[in-house]
Write a protein that binds this DNA or RNA. Structure first.
Length: 899
RNA sequence: GGGCGCGUAGCUCAGCUGGUUAGAGCGCACGGUUCACAUCCGUGAGGUCGAUGGUUCGAGUCCAUUCGCGCCCACCA
C-alpha cells in the first residue's frame, strides 16, 4: 500500500533521474537522427540563462515553472518539444564575485594580472557553475541537458565574433569618444539601461558667475553638482530672457579657477527654472554635451577613471569627487561667490550593480548604431509576427525602440567576450576579424595588440536563441528548431534582452527569434514588497522546497501568477498547495485501494449512476475549460480550475458517493471503479504540467494497479510514464450532460440542506436519522439516489421514504425545501414549533425578496431587450423560487394549525 | 513630463469576450477519531467590488473624472 503521506523527498530526485534516463527530455523527431520529418512543427523554448554562479531565487522558480509547464503540455500533446538550457557568464556580476573573493584573500585583479585573474574566474565558474543548474533540475525542469550551453562556450563565442564582425562590416558598429556612463567603482562604462535614476534628497546650490569685465556684476547660476563647475566651459541663458540680454556674448569667470568662459544663448535653457542661467559642462552632462556640440564649446574632463579630480581642477587636483564638492563650495563661500543652497529632490543616476553614483564622462568606447536594427524590430511586432503577452507591453516596447540611443557595448572588464579588434602599432589601422589575426591586415606588421575591452554581457545574450542552436553554422538543430516558439521571461528585461534578441535575430538570421513573448511579473513578498535582505522578507525557495515539496512551490507560483503582473508569495499559500498535493495523493490511494477486489460486471451495457454521469460531465467540462485557458496563456486560472474540480467535486463528492456505490456491489460498483480510474487518470494528466512529481508517482502506481486488475483494458494504451502520456483533448458537449449535472446538483442541494439543518440543530454527525422526501417530477431520481443521499446526509436508509406527492404535510416533522423537493425529518424530540416557524418564515422572507426582484426585472425592458436565453433563465429561476415559496407557505400553515 | 499596473471578504488574491443573490486560500466561529486524507471532513459568519458620473435592458467587468498605492520611460540645471 502507498504511504499515507506523499513523501516528496524520496520521490522527486528518483523520478527526475528516471525521466532523464528514459530520454523523455529529448525532443522527438530529432533532426540529427534518421527518420526525421522536417515538416512537423516543433515547440521550442530557450531558457533565459541564469548567471552561471548565481543561486536559485524565486524569480528562477517562477520562470522555470512556467516554461516547464508549457514544455510538458506541448510534449503531452505530441508536439516535438525542445527546451534548451544554459547559463550566462554575467560579466560584471561574476567578475565582482571573484574580485570580492580576491579581496578577502588580500589580493586583487590588478595584482594578479589579466591571465591569472581569468584563470581564477574560470575556476570559480567550475566550482559554482553547476549549483544553479542542479537547482533548476530540482524544480523538475524537463530541459534537454545534452543541449546545454554557456555564453562563453566556444560555439557561442564564435557566434559573438560573427555578429560583431558582421555589424562592423555593415558600418553599424563604430568606436569613438562619446559621453558615456562611467562607473568609478566598477571601472567601466555601462549602458544607459544599466543606470537607474533614483529620486533622492539633495541640494540645489546657487552661486555667482562674475563678469570678467566687471567682477562686481554676476549671473546667478544653480547646480546640483558644484564640483563640475571646474569643467564648465560656458554659461547659457535663454535667447529671449530679458534679464540676461546684456550678458550674451560676454565672458564670465569660473569660480576659484578664474578661467574665462563665454555666456551663450540657447533655446534649451528654461527661463523659469532655477535662476534661468545654466552652467555648461559638456564633459560631464549629457545635455551640456549637446549644447557644447551646438556651440562648439571646449570639452574638459575634470574627473579621472577613479572619479578623482584631474589637473583641470587646479587646487582640487587629486581629490575625490565628493571631497572636491565640499572643498570647492567652502572656498567659494569664503570668496563670497555663494548665494544660497536649498534642499532639492532630484534623480540621481546610480549603477544597477553596486548602486554607486554614475558619472557621465567622455570616453572612447565601442557603440552599436542601433536605430536601423530597431526599425525592423518594431515592424515585426507591429505586424503581429511576434506576439507579446500581455499585449500592453507592446506599447512599452514601441516607445523604447522609437527613442532608442546608440548602445555602448564595450566594457572595461576582463570576464567576457573580448572585442575582436586588433590595433597595429605601426600603421595604426585596425583589424577586425573572425579569427585571431597574426598580422595587421593593412601593413602586415606583426606588431598588433587586441583591444583590451570585453563586450556587454547582453551582446551575447542577444544572440542566445540562435547561437545555442548552432548559428552561425546551419546545423540540423538550427534548421529545424529555429525560430523558437515562446520566449518566456520577466518584463523587467524586455529592453535588456527581448528587444535585443529580436533586433539581432532579424539582422543576423533574417528571421524572428520566437513567435510569442510571454512576460511574467516579479516575485514579491506576501505584502507586495520587494524581497530584500535588509527587510528580512527573503524567502529561499530551496528551504521551502525542502519543507513542502517542489510540487507545492511550483503550483503556488503558477496559480498565483497572471502574465505581466507581480506575484506575491506567502508561505501560507505554499502550505495550502502542499495540502493539495497530499489530497491528490490520498485520493489516488483510495482509487488504487479499490482496485484490489473489483466487483463483477453483470450484463452487457454500462450501468452508470447519476454521480458517475455527473463527474464524467464535469470532467469533460474541465478539459474544455483548461484547453481554452491554456490557449489564452491563462495558466494560473487553469490551475485553479483543476484544483477546484479535483478537491471540490471529485474528492469531496464523487469519492464519497463512490464509497457507497462500491459497497452496494454489483455491476454499478464495477462501473464506479472504472469511473474513478478514468477521472483520476484524466485529472493527473491535466495536473502534470503543474505538479509533475506527485502526479507521475501516483499515476505509475495507478497504471500498475490497473494493469494487474480486471480493468486492465483501460490502461492498455497508457505509456510507461505520465510525462509522455497524451494530453486530454476536449470533446463536444453531449446533450445528456446538462440534465445529469442539474439532477445531481439537486441531490447536492438536498444533502446540503439536511447537513445544514443537522448542524443547526446540533444533531450528532454520526447519528442516522429518518427522512421523508417528496420528489414530484424528480421522484424517480431520488428513489435511485437514496443510497448516496443517506450516506452523505447521514440518513437511515431503512427509514428513508420517497413519495411523489403528499396529501397532508406532517405536522410534527421538521420541514425543509430544496428546490422542487420537500424534505420532512421526523425528529419529534427536536422540534420546537416557535423555532420552526421562525426558521421557515425567515427563509420565506428571503425567498420573497428574490421573487420580487425577479418579477420586477422581468417586467422591465430587460424582458424585451435581453437575449431570449438570458430571459428564459431568469424566468425558470423565478418559477423555481415560486414553487419553493409556496411549499414553505404550506409548511408554515401546517405549523399554525398545530397551535 | 510621458506611459503603465493595482485598489474586490480580517489578510493574500481569482474573476475570460458585460448577463444579473460576487469566488478561493488563509484566518475566524461551531461541530466532528466511520478503515483515502486532521497536510482532513461538515456547517457558518464576513465584501456590493476605492469614489463620482456616464454608456447599456443589464457593469466588479466598458468610458470619463477623481483619490490612494506601486512601477517604467524621459537630457530640466
Amino acid at each position: 500500500m502507498l504511504p499515507k503521506r506523499y513523501d516528496f523527498k524520496s520521490v522527486e530526485s528518483r523520478l527526475y533521474d528516471f525521466w532523464e534516463k528514459q530520454g523523455y527530455f529529448k525532443p522527438t523527431n530529432d533532426p540529427n537522427l534518421p527518420g526525421h520529418d522536417p515538416k512537423k512543427k516543433p515547440f521550442v523554448i530557450s531558457i533565459p540563462p541564469p548567471n552561471v554562479t548565481g543561486v536559485l531565487h524565486l524569480g528562477h522558480v517562477l520562470f522555470v515553472s512556467l516554461e516547464d509547464l508549457m514544455t510538458r503540455h506541448q510534449r503531452m500533446k505530441g508536439v516535438p518539444t525542445l527546451w534548451v538550457p544554459g547559463t550566462d557568464h554575467a560579466g560584471i556580476a561574476t567578475q565582482l564575485q571573484v574580485e570580492m573573493k580576491l579581496k578577502a584573500e588580500g589580493t586583487s585583479r590588478d595584482e594578479l594580472g589579466r591571465n591569472r585573474f581569468l584563470e581564477e574566474v574560470w575556476e570559480w565558474k567550475e566550482e559554482h557553475g553547476n549549483r544553479i543548474v542542479e537547482q533548476i533540475r530540482r524544480l523538475g525542469a524537463s530541459c534537454d541537458w545534452d543541449r546545454e550551453r554557456f555564453t562563453l562556450d566556444e560555439g557561442l563565442s564564435r557566434a559573438v565574433r560573427e555578429a560583431f564582425v558582421h555589424l562592423y562590416e555593415k558600418g553599424l558598429i563604430y568606436r569613438g569618444p562619446r559621453l558615456i556612463n562611467w562607473s568609478p567603482a566598477l571601472q567601466t562604462a555601462v549602458s544607459d539601461l544599466e543606470v537607474e535614476h533614483v529620486e533622492e534628497q539633495g541640494k540645489l546650490y546657487y552661486f555667482k558667475y562674475r563678469l570678467a569685465e566687471n567682477p562686481d556684476v554676476f549671473i546667478p547660476v544653480a547646480t546640483t553638482r558644484p564640483e563640475t563647475i571646474l569643467a564648465d566651459t560656458a554659461v547659457a541663458v535663454h535667447p529671449e530672457d530679458e534679464r540676461y540680454q546684456d550678458y550674451i556674448g560676454k565672458t564670465v569667470l569660473v569660480p576659484i579657477l578664474d578661467r574665462e568662459i563665454p555666456v551663450i544663448a540657447d533655446e534649451y535653457v528654461s527661463q523659469e527654472f532655477g535662476t534661468g542661467a545654466l552652467k555648461i559642462t559638456p564633459g560631464h552632462d549629457p545635455n551640456d554635451y549637446e549644447i557644447g556640440q551646438r556651440h562648439d564649446l571646449e570639452l574638459l574632463s575634470m574627473l579621472d577613471k577613479k572619479a578623482m579630480v584631474t589637473e583641470i581642477g587646479g587646487p582640487y587636483h587629486g581629490q575625490d569627487r565628493f571631497e572636491a564638492r565640499k572643498n570647492l563650495w567652502r572656498d567659494m563661500k569664503d570668496a563670497g561667490l555663494v548665494i544660497k543652497e536649498e534642499d532639492y529632490v532630484h534623480q540621481v543616476p546610480r549603477a544597477q550593480r553596486g548602486g554607486e553614483i554614475i558619472e557621465p564622462m567622455i570616453s572612447t568606447q565601442w557603440f552599436v548604431d542601433i536605430a536601423p536594427l530597431a526599425e525592423k524590430a518594431l515592424r515585426v511586432v507591429r505586424d503581429g509576427e511576434i506576439e507579446i503577452i500581455p499585449e500592453r507591453f507592446r506599447k512599452v516596447y514601441y516607445n523604447w525602440l522609437e527613442n532608442i540611443h546608440d548602445w555602448c557595448i564595450s566594457r572595461q572588464l576582463w570576464w567576457g567576450h573580448r572585442i575582436p579588434v586588433w590595433y597595429c602599432d605601426d600603421c595604426l589601422e585596425l583589424t577586425v576579424a573572425r579569427e585571431d589575426p597574426s598580422a595587421c591586415q593593412h601593413c602586415g606588421s606583426k606588431n598588433i595588440h587586441q583591444d583590451p575591452d570585453v563586450l556587454d554581457t547582453w551582446f551575447s545574450s542577444g544572440l542566445w536563441p540562435f547561437s545555442t542552436l548552432g548559428w552561425p553554422d546551419h546545423t540540423p538543430d538550427y534548421e529545424y528548431f529555429f525560430p523558437t516558439t515562446v520566449m518566456e521571461t520577466g518584463y523587467d528585461i524586455l529592453f535588456f534582452w527581448v528587444a535585443r534578441m529580436i533586433m539581432f535575430s532579424l539582422e543576423m538570421t533574417g528571421k524572428i527569434p520566437f513567435e510569442t513573448v510571454y512576460l511574467h511579473g516579479l516575485v514579491m513578498d506576501e505584502h507586495g514588497q520587494k524581497m530584500s535582505k535588509s527587510k528580512h522578507n527573503v524567502i529561499d525557495p530551496l528551504d521551502v522546497m525542502d519543507d513542502m515539496g517542489t510540487d507545492a512551490v511550483r503550483f503556488t507560483m503558477l496559480v498565483g501568477s497572471t502574465p505581466g503582473v507581480n506575484t506575491n508569495l506567502s508561505l501560507q499559500k505554499v502550505e495550502a498547495n502542499r495540502n493539495f498535493a497530499n489530497k491528490v495523493w490520498n485520493a489516488g490511494r483510495f482509487v488504487i485501494g479499490n482496485l484490489e477486489n473489483i466487483p463483477e460486471k453483470i450484463g452487457a451495457g454500462p450501468d452508470w449512476t447519476l454521480a458517475d454521469s455527473w463527474i464524467w460531465a464535469k470532467m469533460q467540462g474541465l478539459i474544455r475549460n483548461v484547453d481554452r485557458l491554456f490557449n489564452n496563456h491563462q495558466y494560473g486560472e487553469a490551475g485553479r480550475y483543476i484544483y477546484d474540480f479535483f478537491w471540490g467535486e471529485y474528492a469531496d463528492w464523487y469519492l464519497e458517493i463512490a464509497k457507497n456505490q462500491i459497497a452496494e456491489g454489483g455491476s454499478r460498483a464495477y462501473y464506479t471503479v472504472e469511473t474513478l480510474i478514468k477521472v483520476l487518470d484524466l485529472s493527473l494528466r491535466l495536473l502534470h504540467p503543474f505538479t509533475p512529481f506527485v502526479t507521475e508517482e501516483l499515476w505509475q502506481h495507478l497504471r500498475k494497479a490497473v494493469l494487474n486488475s480486471p480493468l486492465m483494458d483501460i490502461a492498455a494504451d497508457w505509456p510507461d510514464a505520465l510525462m509522455i502520456a497524451s494530453w486530454p483533448e476536449p470533446r463536444k458537449r453531449e446533450t445528456w450532460e446538462e440534465t445529469k449535472v442539474s439532477e445531481f446538483e439537486l441531490i447536492q442541494d438536498i444533502i446540503r440542506t439536511i447537513r445544514n439543518l443537522r448542524s443547526e440543530k446540533n444533531i450528532k454527525p454520526g447519528k442516522l436519522i429518518p427522512a421523508k422526501l417528496v420528489g414530484g417530477d424528480y421522484t424517480a431520481v431520488l428513489e435511485d439516489q437514496v443510497g448516496s443521499l443517506s450516506s452523505l446526509a447521514f440518513l437511515d436508509p431503512e427509514k428513508v421514504t420517497v413519495i411523489q406527492s403528499l396529501d397532508q404535510i406532517p405536522a410534527g416533522d421538521i420541514a425543509l425545501v430544496a428546490g422542487p423537493v420537500e424534505i420532512y425529518l421526523p425528529l419529534s424530540g427536536l422540534v420546537d414549533i416557535t423555532e420552526e416557524k421562525q426558521r421557515l418564515s425567515s427563509e420565506l422572507l428571503e425567498l420573497e425578496g428574490e421573487i420580487n426582484r425577479l418579477q420586477e426585472l422581468l417586467s422591465s425592458p430587460f424582458a424585451e431587450k435581453a437575449p431570449q436565453p438570458v430571459v428564459d433563465k431568469e424566468r425558470e429561476k423565478l418559477a423555481g423560487y415560486q414553487e419553493t415559496a409556496s411549499t414553505l407557505q404550506d409548511q408554515l400553515a401546517t405549523l399554525e394549525d398545530v397551535e
